[in-house]
Design a protein around this nucleic acid. Sequence first.
DNA 1: GTTGGAGTTGAACGAGCGTTCGAAGCCCCA
DNA 2: TGGGGCTTCGAACGCTCGTTCAACTCCAAC
Lengths: 207, 207
Amino acid sequence: MANQTRDQKLEGLLSSAAREFALRGYDRTSMRDLARASGVSLAGVYYYVQSKEELLFLIQSRNFEAVIAGMRDTLRGVTDPVERLQRFIDNHLDYFATHMAEMKVLSREADALEGEFLQRVNDMKRQYTRALMDVLADIEKTHGPAHANRRVAAYSLFGMMNWIYTWYDPLGDVGVELLSQNICRLFLGGYVGLPVSETALSRGGAG
Amino acid sequence: MANQTRDQKLEGLLSSAAREFALRGYDRTSMRDLARASGVSLAGVYYYVQSKEELLFLIQSRNFEAVIAGMRDTLRGVTDPVERLQRFIDNHLDYFATHMAEMKVLSREADALEGEFLQRVNDMKRQYTRALMDVLADIEKTHGPAHANRRVAAYSLFGMMNWIYTWYDPLGDVGVELLSQNICRLFLGGYVGLPVSETALSRGGAG
DNA sequence: GTTGGAGTTGAACGAGCGTTCGAAGCCCCA
DNA sequence: TGGGGCTTCGAACGCTCGTTCAACTCCAAC
């Protein structure tokens, strides 16, 4: 605790702040809570960070950057579209599972930021979404016509992956590899691989 | 505004509260905001509701109850498992799209409640999840083995459907029927209907 | 041994919060 | 005309919030 560089202390602060934010939510967590959780005084927190909002921004942007960097890394040189998608999903879920608190904060506190902070995180979101949609376009080229609108499909996949912050326990009986495989299969082939033209799929509204 | 029953006024309060909560988030919205938005005084709000938390609870429970009731209704008498799933999805998305504010609050402020309020909403969640998983079990019986763990599949479908609060605009160019159809096809047959055994689907981790 | 900057702190500030309460307004029925 | 119960309100209470700041410790450099 004593001989840490300034950067290491900031890192520690961000990490315990993420844990607190994930637990209680950004708004319900006070700077006093964060001070207590990271072992410094209330005023001490402000030596490392300009405001509570900057703290949230740093958590969101640093982790989002890591996810994007990991994605670019794992896709580099891979040409098969399906494998590219598998790697995209793997990277996302693997990072999510090993950084549950941070990713929960990123998923859930999406619009707690304002102004330039919000803009910069939203830029990353656009970038990341674009990358997924490019992969989907490649898949359509090689594996026939899509069963759904590409944008809807992309957001649905993000929904499957990000929603895990509400239910998934990385230490439970479903390991990350199994989770990733499940979601990948689900997205590419569906729950039971039903042909799209089947039966009543064209029916209108129900009820 | 003048000749409304007490119930009607409560209804109006809940509706404008849902709109405010959806806009700014539960915690960032003050009782003064709600009073302003619904056109009564601050103290006036407390004539209809015991606390801010009860307000949130009423929004969540009433709408969740409506979703569940709609689901039971639309499934009644329908025996084909696939159509049951279609109707389940249709009901969920249709209600979501016509009650965006309320459902955003239900999805996003899931753990802002405590004690008995939380317990009662969680009971509804369990009930609703169970219903979906029963439908999935039926589908497996009639349409061969599943491509994914049933629990993972159920939560993934909820993820697809609930995540729409972050991106979907009911007034945009994707209508509710199209959205519902897309998500239904996606879940049952996958994005391009890829056979599960295909290529590298059994590969381990990436990167 | 003094200086100076980095790190840390207790105490306070003004503002906003959720909630309460006594009093006033309103309207129907006698 | 007057009483009584719903409904509404202004004003206040106690509390917690994010943020600031002068003062302190510590330690390396001279």
